[in-house]
Amino acid sequence: MYAFVWRQLPGPWPAKLILSLVLFAVIVYALFMWIFPWAEETLGITQVTVD
């Protein structure tokens, strides 16, 4: 999977390295901004009220 992505990235290896780091950063950002907050709410694992 990762080898496949590496082959798809254009340019010489330093460009590939920078591109893959950027890709990684974008994915982590999306996880923290949208996916994890959604998961926390959906899983309901941090409830503190009686109802």
Binding site: F36, A39, I45
Partner: peptide, 12 residues
């Protein structure tokens, strides 16, 4: 991803 989720919950 699970580890990052724990980091998010406890710190993020």
């Amino acid at each position: 991803i699970v580890l990052l989720f724990v980091v998010y919950l406890l710190w993020g």
